[in-house]
Design a protein around this nucleic acid. Structure first.
Lengths: 242, 242
DNA sequence: GAGTGGTCTAGACCACTGG
DNA sequence: CAGTGGTCTAGACCACTCC
């Protein structure tokens, strides 16, 4: 039966999700037609469609005009191109995340950072908070992460207490809510400095991830440059056809 | 005015898109309220909502309950985690794509490929078409790409005429339509063989991309392993918060 | 209180699929 | 042909924001 809380369409979504999780609806199965569901749960067809549309967008169901709505294979049901923090990323891999803050400074933004964050083209006027953190997984070095935050958005955030803390969670307290990001990935090799902090040999394979994160309005809120150990980290992404 | 073709909500989407492209609606601007648009174009509010919801999903607009609907900054409006072929990828980078087929064979699927494609755990029973192609951009080597296709889906596809052709386009003729994919990315170094075909020095930095592509039903249709030149290629992805 | 988006109804007709 | 999803209407009330 439908749970007694929240919008109707969300309750129907949960109900169908549970049917699938419990195996009562298996991949490839046809779900009841929109008119049947509307009758069965005493709601209008538009409300049923709302629920089904959301589940289709999440890749849990798929529709075929004239035929019906069906349960997709489990593989689809992974998070698609999800924007996650390092903390969330490690937890989802079954690792214990951690951080050591190596340095926190207010610096004039270099050209690349100004460009990524959309700051004025005047280094003196464009100051950013630069946070350099060694990211750990199960206590071992995983990545060296350098975050640049425009000062305009985070007046109070000084550099204390960033050990073992998700910076994303901290930013939310300032009303800075990540919505989406663009990321580039390229191969790199460890120089002497990187080799020392990451505990790998010089020349070891690394993955350089550069990410610009935006809020809902499309305003840049951080630029992060991270060197991940190639022997410990493999980047995963879900791609969706349009 | 509204164009005289296709569903109403799509015509409204196009109209708003044009207003934005033409600069008559700028980032941060509030678009007319749903009730205003409904009045103005003589359609129901639900139809207006349908159009706006799609544009919000595409990251072109964003909504704030109680306040209004607004135009997002242009940065958002890139393709989000789009599943593209090598051909499309190169074209979007302004490069001329090409391919040299190095080998086409029917082989028993190795363990990794069987696993990725969800084939039976019996190498003899699980045969795949293995296509090895050198991918070019502006005539220069960009990547060595090894594609594995389950034979069950592509009875007629023999190995000819795959030069300078999008394999995706060819697959569509067999009713095999890519819908989404999972991809992993890790750093690699060129061994002697890779160095020779990619025209880089041995030990040069590469990016190893491994992709499993699925159709709408969630059935795996290909497994591709590609070594990209690190000096020419940088992987880009858009991440979306959920 | 006025205006916004969020949810919901009870119908309708069209386009596509399959027998 | 019957059944499916795709589009559309003309209302309604709720939740939230701002004044």
């Amino acid at each position: 039966m439908l749970k007694p809380a929240g919008p109707l369409y969300q309750r129907l979504m949960e109900l169908l999700q549970e049917e699938i999780d419990a195996g009562r609806l298996k991949p490839g199965d046809q779900v009841p037609s929109e008119r049947e569901l509307a009758d069965q749960y005493s709601m209008s067809r538009m409300t049923v469609r709302h629920a089904l549309t959301e589940l289709v967008n999440e890749g849990i169901l798929y529709r075929q005009q004239g035929k019906g709505t069906f349960v997709a294979l489990p593989k689809i049901r992974q998070k698609l191109g999800g924007l996650t923090s390092f903390t969330e990323d490690m937890v989802s891999r079954g690792l214990r995340p951690g951080a050591h803050v190596l340095s926190v400074q207010v610096v004039p933004a270099p050209y690349r950072v100004r460009h990524a964050l959309g700051l004025p083209d005047d280094a003196a006027a464009a100051e950013v908070l630069r946070v350099e953190r060694l990211r750990l997984a199960d206590g071992e070095p995983m990545a060296l992460e350098v975050t640049h935050l425009p000062l305009t958005r985070i007046h109070g955030l000084s550099g204390e207490n960033l050990d073992n803390v998700s910076l994303y969670e901290r930013l939310q307290q300032y009303g800075v809510v990540p919505n989406h990001a663009t990321q580039t990935i390229e191969p790199a090799a460890a120089d002497a400095a990187l080799a020392r902090v990451l505990k790998v040999r010089e020349g070891a394979l690394l993955l350089l991830l550069e990410r610009t994160t935006y809020d809902q309005r499309g305003e840049a809120i951080e630029f992060v440059s991270s060197h991940y150990r190639g022997d410990r980290y493999r980047f995963m992404v879900e791609l969706q056809r349009r």
